[in-house]
Write a protein that binds this DNA or RNA. Structure first.
Lengths: 343, 343
DNA sequence: AGAGATTACGCAAACGATTGCGGTCACTAT
DNA sequence: ATAGTGACCGCAATCGTTTGCGTAATCTCT
C-alpha cells in the first residue's frame, strides 16, 4: 500500500494541510523551517509520492493532453508524436495517443477524450474534417485545441501551427521545372493516396497544379485503389502502371504526396529499368531518413516538424492557462527542398 | 462545466448512489424499471459522462498501463506500440508511452510510473537491464509487469512473451550457409549497433556465432561508432568500410541486427557496385516494409509482433486480476524467414 | 502593557464517484 | 393483527488531495 499525505502528517505531528503546503511550497501560509524539515524528511524516508488521481480530481485537471494523428505507420507522424511528447513532458504533461485511421476507436474516442480525461488536444487531421466530427455530438467543444499540420477552413478562429502545404506543391513544381523534368512527355504527375476512391486533391496537389497551369505544363493527379500493402505498396503499383505506358505517355516528373509513395514508386521504376532522373524525375515529401538511403537518394521536401510541435505545445499551453490568444492565430511554417539524386 | 452524478440524481429525484447503480448496473441492490428509465434518460439528455479521476480515485486503479520501449525511430517498436495499444484499448485500458532511449526521462519516469499512475507495465527493454534500474530505488516492485521481446535473466520468475532471439541468429546462419554465402572470403559477419562503444553481443549474435562455430565458418561481430545518423547511417558507414576492403577480406554473408542497419549497408554496397547476393549476401531482421521496397528486396526475418503483443496484454490483464500465474511463465515465439533478393 | 501585525498552523469543506449497510415500504402468510 | 419477506432506495463513509478561512501564539511598536 502506498503512503499517503495523512501518514506523513500524522508522523510529523502536523495537519494534512500543513504537510501538503510544505510539499508543494504553495498555499499562501508560511511554515516554519523546523516543520518543513520534519515533513520533508519524513516524506523522503517513507518514499511518499502523491496520488495523481486525487490531485487531478481536486485540481480538476488531467495533466494529460490527447494527441490525435491519423496513424503511426508513416514515420512522419511518428516524428510528430516523438517531438510533441517530448515538449509536453518537459512541461510535466502526459500524452495520450489517438490514431484515427488505423484503428476503429469508435466509442473509445468518446470515452477518452472528454473534458475530464484531457486538458487539451493537439489535432493532426485531414483539413477537411474537423475535430468535432471525431468527438461526435457528445464532444466537448470547450477543450483547448491546437491544430497541427494544416489550417482547417471549418475552424477559422482556432489556433493552428500549419505547414505551408500549398508551397510544397509549388516548390516541387519549380524544382522539376528548373531541372527540366516538367515539359517532358506527359508533363508532371502528382501521386496521391486515395480517399473514398479518388485521389486526395489537397493543397499540395493544388499548389503544384497551379504552378503547372501558369507555365502551361501538362498536369495529372493520379492515385490507385490498392492500399492493402500500405503507401509504399500503392506507390509501387502506380510505378508498375507507369512502366506499362509507352514513353511519351509517361510523366517527365513525379511529385509524390509523401516519401512512402515515392519510395514505392521509385522501387518499381528502377526495377523496371527506367533511367532516373533522365527519363523520369521523382520528388517526394517529408524528408524521411528512408529516402536518403535508397540506392538513388530521394529528392524530397523537409518540413520543420520539431518547430511545429514546439510552437503547437507552447500555444496549447497558453490556451490552457487562458492567456490572451496569440497573434497571429495561425502560424505557417515553410518547407525546404532536399536535393537527392532522383531529380 | 461538466454534469456530475449529483446533477443526475437531483434531476431524477434519487440519491447519487441510486443513479450510480443504475448507470453501472452494479451494486447488488435492485432498482425499479421506472427509476432506471428516468435516470438513464436524464443522463442521456444531460450528456453525462463520469469523471474518470473520481472513479479512479475511488476504485484505486488508473485504467492505464505504461508501455516501455527503447524508442520510436525504429518502425519495429512502432509496430509493437500500435498492437499493444490496440489490444489494450479493446480492454478499455489507456496506454502511456515511455521511450527510454531517445529522451531523457529522468525524474519523469519516477513521476509517471508510480503504482498510482499505472496499473501495469509492458516492458520492452534490453535483456541486460531490468525494469528496476529504470524505475530507480523509488520504483514500486509490486506493479504487475510483463516483459516483452526477450527473457530477462535478472527476473527469471517474471511473466514474459519473448521472441526466439537466438533462433534468429541460427536461422540466418542456416540460410546463409545453405545458399552458399557462408564460406566465401571472410565468412559471416554480424552487424550490430554499438553499446558503450562495443558491438552488442546479444542472443542473435550468439546464435549465429554458435552455428558458425559448429560448421567451422569464420565469424566476426562488428559495429561502428558513428550513430549520429541513426541505424541506417551506421549500416551505411559499415558498408563503406567493407567496400574499402580487398575482396578476400570481405564477408561472404552479412546478418544485420535489424533491417535498418541492413538497409543502410545494402545502400552503401550497391552504390559501391558490389554484386548482391553473388559477392556479398545480406540478411536483415524484423521484416519491415521498408526492406521489401528496396531495389533489391531484403531477405529478412519476420517476428510475430501482433501475437506477441496480444499474448502479453492477455497475460498482463490476468496478472492485474490476480489470476493464478499462467504456465509456462514464459512464452517464446519463433521467427520466420522472408526470402528476398539479397541472398 | 496593550493594540496591531505577523507567523504558523489546524479545521473542514470541497472534488465526483462507489458501496456497505440500514431503513422504508407493500405484500403475504400465519 | 403481527411478523416475515422481498423489493427499492438513501445515508454517509471513503478514496487522497488542495485550499479558504479561522485562530492561537509570537513579535513589534509606542
Amino acid at each position: 500500500m502506498q503512503v499517503s499525505l495523512e501518514d506523513i502528517a500524522r508522523g510529523a505531528g502536523v495537519a494534512r494541510s500543513t504537510a501538503s503546503r510544505v510539499l508543494n511550497g504553495s498555499g499562501g501560509a508560511t511554515i516554519s523551517q523546523a516543520t518543513q524539515e520534519r515533513v520533508r524528511r519524513l516524506a523522503q524516508e517513507l518514499g511518499y509520492r502523491p496520488n495523481r488521481m486525487a490531485q487531478r480530481l481536486r485540481k480538476r485537471q488531467a495533466d494529460t493532453i490527447g494527441l490525435i494523428v491519423p496513424h503511426l505507420r508513416n514515420p512522419f507522424f511518428v516524428e510528430v508524436v516523438v517531438w510533441c511528447q517530448r515538449f509536453l513532458s518537459e512541461r510535466g504533461l502526459n500524452t495520450v495517443l489517438y490514431p484515427t485511421m488505423l484503428e476503429d476507436w469508435g466509442g473509445a474516442t468518446e470515452y477518452h477524450l472528454s473534458r475530464w480525461a484531457v486538458d487539451g488536444i493537439l489535432y493532426y487531421g485531414s483539413p477537411t474534417d474537423s475535430i468535432q466530427k471525431l468527438l461526435g455530438e457528445s464532444g466537448d467543444a470547450s477543450i483547448p485545441t491546437v491544430y497541427l499540420g494544416h489550417l482547417h477552413e471549418s475552424e477559422p478562429e482556432a489556433l493552428a501551427v500549419a505547414l505551408a502545404v500549398e508551397e510544397l506543391g509549388r516548390l516541387a513544381g519549380v524544382h522539376l521545372y528548373e531541372r527540366g523534368h516538367a515539359r517532358r512527355n506527359a508533363g508532371v504527375w502528382c501521386l496521391s493516396p486515395p480517399r473514398d476512391g479518388v485521389a486526395i486533391r489537397d493543397a499540395r496537389a493544388c499548389g503544384l497544379e497551379r504552378f503547372c497551369q501558369e507555365r502551361e505544363i501538362p498536369f495529372s493527379l493520379v492515385t490507385g485503389n490498392d492500399i492493402s500493402d500500405g503507401l509504399r505498396g500503392l506507390g509501387f503499383s502506380l510505378g508498375l502502371q507507369i512502366l506499362a505506358l509507352p514513353a511519351q505517355a509517361r510523366p517527365g516528373g513525379i511529385f509524390c504526396h509523401n516519401d512512402l509513395l515515392a519510395v514505392g514508386c521509385l522501387c518499381a521504376l528502377r526495377r523496371g529499368g527506367v533511367n532516373i532522373p533522365e527519363e523520369i524525375a521523382l520528388i517526394g515529401c517529408d524528408a524521411l531518413p528512408e529516402g536518403r538511403f535508397q540506392e538513388l537518394s530521394l529528392t524530397t521536401l523537409r518540413q520543420p516538424i520539431s518547430t511545429m510541435c514546439q510552437q503547437a505545445v507552447e500555444r496549447l499551453f497558453g490556451l490552457m492557462q487562458s492567456e490572451p490568444l496569440p497573434q497571429p492565430r495561425q502560424i505557417i511554417l515553410t518547407p525546404e527542398l532536399v536535393q537527392g539524386h532522383t531529380t
